[in-house]
Design a binder for these strands. Structure first.
Length: 213
DNA sequence: CGGCGCTAATCC
DNA sequence: GGATTAGCGCCG
């Protein structure tokens, strides 16, 4: 977002860097002092003493580096050396600054990805919930339709001789026990139901169920 | 070599 | 206490 630079002087510094940075003496004075004590390993003798103050880069230096980073996150050694001399820094400092900056950029991007993923997840959970209630609703409709069918069948078979084999046709077609692969949705005899009721809404509404079976 | 991860040290 | 600067070790 912020390509940075609210101060026009910093833009000028892009074109006259050596001039500009000369006016900004390193606030701690003291030339870049590396070699810092850390846990064990390779303590090269020499002057390795104690009082290293950590010099902070000046605002101008940082904004120049930011500008440069905005153009290109990688730092080829030519650019490194040029930047270093323009800013009056050790090339190593420039390299370190870019490394740290890349690390910050990466973790920021990671965080953005995370929150984006989280939002997607949340809305997916919401959608799942919505679909589950829809399933419930449709199951209820299905149940009602089955009851209607049952009632109509009973009405049909009432006045007719009960031991005629021809009367059992639809009752058997309406097997009330769902086949195992349809179990959860109880879609037994579903074609018969649709033919019978001609309920287009239910028909369309259940189309998606086919995706699950 | 330079990059990166990890981490200490330091600044604010 | 988070941000910044830097050292160290490892990898390609």
């Amino acid at each position: 977002m912020n390509l940075g630079v609210d101060d026009p002087m910093e833009l000028i510094s892009e074109y006259y860097p050596q001039f500009y940075t000369k006016m900004v003496p390193q606030q701690g004075e003291a030339k870049p002092r590396r070699r810092r004590r850390k846990k064990s390993k390779g303590e090269d003798g020499g002057g390795g003493g104690g009082g290293f103050k950590k010099r902070k880069l000046s605002e101008q230096q940082v904004s120049m580096l930011e500008l440069s980073f905005g153009n290109e996150h990688k730092l080829e050694s030519e650019r490194k050396d040029r930047l270093a001399s323009e800013l009056g820094l050790d090339p190593r400092q420039v390299a370190v600054w870019f490394q740290n900056r890349r690390a910050r950029w990466k973790s920021k991007k990671l965080e953005e990805q995370y929150s984006k993923l989280k939002m997607e997840h949340d809305s997916t959970v919401l959608e799942k919930c919505r679909l589950e209630t829809e399933v419930l609703k449709l199951k209820e409709q299905l149940c009602d339709a089955e009851k209607d069918i049952q009632r109509l069948l009973e009405r049909c078979t009432d006045g007719v001789s009960s031991n005629s084999p021809s009367t059992s046709f639809s009752v058997e077609a309406m097997d009330p026990v769902p086949p195992p692969f349809l179990g959860e949705f109880g879609m037994d005899g579903i074609e018969n139901i649709f033919h019978f009721s001609g309920n287009n809404y239910v028909n369309q509404g259940l189309e998606w169920v086919n995706l699950y079976i």
